[in-house]
C-alpha cells in the first residue's frame, strides 16, 4: 500500500533522514522505533508532504506522492496525526471532527464510529478543543484523522505527554481500529507498547534503518532489548 524507497529529507540544507526504505502492506500495523532525535518525525513529515523529499520516492497505492502538497496527500486517503496534534483550539469537538471530513460534510456513520471508539468525545462534543486535557486532545486528534475515512493512518508519537495509563489506553484504541481493518504506521519511543500493536517494525537511528523484522523478533533482539526495553 505504501512503499517508501531510499527517502532522504531534512530541514533546508541539513539532511536528517538518509536513504530510508519502509513498506506497509494493506491491513498491517507497522512501527518505527528509535530514540529522540533519530529522525522518526522528520521521516513521517516527509511522507505527508510537510517536508520536501530530496531523494528517493514515496509510492502510495501504486502512484508517487513524493513532494505532493499536504492537502492532496490527505485527500488521497492518508491521515496523519502529528505529535503536536494541531487541533483547532477555539473550535468545538464537533467542529474539529467535521473539518476532518473536509471537503465533504461529516458522515454520521463515521462520526458514530469515532464516538464508539472514544465515548469521551461524545460527552464533550460542544467543548472547545483547546480547553480539553492532553488525553482527550489525543483522542480528538485521532478521531479527526478518522473522519475522512482514510485507508492509511499515520501517527507520530501518539503517547506524547500522556500518563502511562492513558498511553496504554491510546494503544488499546489503536488495537480496536486494527480489528476494523485499518492500516497503521506509527512512530513511537515507548517500544513495549508499540510492539504490542505492530506486526512488524523498523529501528531508525541517526536517520537510517538499523534493523527491521517482525515485532516478536525485534522484542527478542539483544540490541533492541538493551537500547529500548531496559534489559541489561
Amino acid at each position: 500500500m505504501l512503499e517508501v524507497s531510499g527517502l532522504s529529507t531534512g530541514y533546508d540544507s541539513h539532511v536528517v533522514v538518509l536513504g530510508v526504505s519502509v513498506d506497509v502492506r494493506e491491513g498491517e500495523a507497522v512501527a518505527i522505533i528509535g530514540s529522540n532525535g533519530a529522525g522518526k518525525t522528520t521521516f513521517l513529515r516527509a511522507i505527508c508532504g510537510l517536508l520536501p523529499v530530496s531523494a528517493g520516492d514515496v509510492r502510495y497505492e501504486g502512484r508517487s506522492i513524493a513532494n505532493l502538497a499536504v492537502h492532496k496527500v490527505a485527500r488521497a486517503g492518508i491521515s496523519f496525526v502529528p505529535a503536536e496534534r494541531h487541533l483547532f483550539p477555539e473550535m468545538s469537538v464537533a467542529e474539529n471532527l467535521a473539518l476532518g471530513a473536509f471537503p465533504n460534510r461529516p458522515d454520521p456513520d463515521q462520526q458514530s464510529l469515532v464516538f464508539d471508539l472514544f465515548p469521551r468525545l461524545a460527552e464533550r462534543r460542544r467543548q472547545a478543543a483547546g480547553t480539553m486535557s492532553g488525553g482527550e486532545q489525543q483522542m480528538l486528534a485521532v478521531g479527526r484523522a478518522l473522519m475522512s475515512r482514510p485507508r492509511l493512518l499515520i501517527l507520530d508519537e501518539p503517547t506524547t505527554g500522556l500518563a502511562p495509563r492513558l498511553a496504554s489506553q491510546a494503544y488499546e484504541s489503536l488495537a480496536a481500529l486494527r480489528t476494523l481493518g485499518m492500516t497503521i504506521l506509527v512512530a513511537e519511543q515507548q517500544v513495549p507498547l508499540v510492539l504490542g500493536l505492530a506486526d512488524r517494525g523498523y529501528v531508525l537511528e541517526n536517520g537510517a534503518i538499523q534493523l527491521e523484522g517482525p515485532s516478536a523478533e525485534l522484542r527478542d533482539n539483544p540490541t533492541v532489548q538493551r537500547a529500548y526495553l531496559g534489559v541489561v
Binding site: 505527508c48 510537510l50 502538497a69 499536504v70 492537502h71 490527505a74 485527500r75 491521515s79 496523519f80 502529528p82 496534534r85 494541531h86 487541533l87 483547532f88 473539518l99 476532518g100 473536509f102 471537503p103 479527526r144 484523522a145 475522512s148
Partner: peptide, 9 residues
C-alpha cells in the same frame, strides 16, 4: 498545519 492535514488548501 492542522488545516492542511485535514485536506484544506
Amino acid at each position: 498545519v492542522g488545516a492542511r492535514l485535514c485536506g484544506v488548501n
